[in-house]
Every structure is written in C-alpha cells, then in structure tokens.
C-alpha cells in the first residue's frame, strides 16, 4: 500500500511540465524520454547527442538535488522480482519503439499538443497496464 499524495504529485507533475516547456522553448524539442534515450542507442546514433546526454545526465543526478531540498529520501518499493523487472524492461523498450513514445512523449507532450495519435497511445497503454496489474494481482495472485 502507498499513501495518496495529491499535493506532492501535482507539484512533481508541474515540474515535469516545466521541464517539457523549457526544452521546447530553448531547444525546440519534445521532452519524450523514449525519443531522447533512443537517439543515443544503436543503430543510427544521432549527431545531436550532446543535449540528449546532458538532459539524461540531469535526470540521473536529480536524487542529489532532491537530497538538498528534502531530508527524507523518496519512497521506494519495487514489488517485481528481478526477472520480472528485466522482462518488463525489454517489453517496455520494444513497445515504446513501435509506439513512438512513452508516458512523457505521448502522455505529457502529446496530450498538451492535443494530438489524437498521442491520446490513442495513452488510452491504450493505460488500459493494458491496468489489465496487467489486475491479472498479476487478482487473477494469478500475488
């Protein structure tokens, strides 16, 4: 069980939005993690890798910035087994490549652009995620 955190989640979401707005205003880019990360991986590594690497580096170092503003570390509990985490990662990687985006690209930036394509993607991945958790927890047990 996790505690419902409406204010922190709204604030954190607003920061994600602020980041997306700034990246578009300065770099003219969609803040989609699939696209930013994918461009750094083979095949066909892009020539504009420096800003991508810098953005991901900033994300990676965020826990240190977090520690500067909060004495309590961010809550963490991972119910998945190691094989489930690895398999989930592979499935996500394949899915977001063919789906052309994930929660940030379609869910945040796409919906903010009123893109019907992104709305279709978001409704689809939200539905299958809910179905997967239902099956894992209430059908197969857990």
């Amino acid at each position: 069980m996790t505690e419902f955190t409406p204010l922190q989640s709204l604030l954190g979401g607003a920061l994600i939005g602020l980041s997306a707005v700034l990246l578009m205003a300065v770099h003219g880019r969609i803040a989609g993690i699939t696209g930013i990360l994918g461009g750094l991986l083979p095949p066909g590594i892009v020539t504009d890798w420096p800003w991508r690497l810098a953005f991901l580096g900033g994300m990676l170092l965020a826990p240190f910035a977090y520690a500067a503003v909060s004495t309590v570390p961010p809550g963490f509990s991972s119910p998945g087994s190691w094989p489930a985490l690895a398999a989930g990662g592979v499935i996500v990687g394949i899915g977001v490549t063919y789906g052309s985006g994930c929660t940030s690209g379609h869910g945040v930036c796409g919906l903010a652009r009123f893109s019907p394509r992104s709305l279709a993607a978001v409704l689809t991945f939200m539905a299958t995620a809910a179905l997967t958790v239902f099956v894992a927890r209430h059908v197969l047990g857990g």
Binding site: F64, G80, I91, Y98, G99, T103, F125
Partner: peptide, 30 residues
Amino acid sequence: APLLAGSALFGIGWGIAGFCPGGAIPMLGT
C-alpha cells in the same frame, strides 16, 4: 497498428515492472 500494438506492449511492461523510462532514470541515480 504499430502505434496501438506498441503502446499496448508498453502498458504490459509498465504493469509488470512498475517503471516507465522517465520514472526509472532518476532512480538509477540512487
């Protein structure tokens, strides 16, 4: 079809692991 099939697959993986790409990278830093 690629959009819908890929997104469906992404949701399944997200449900299995509880991580999406944007959620996992900052946690790598911990």
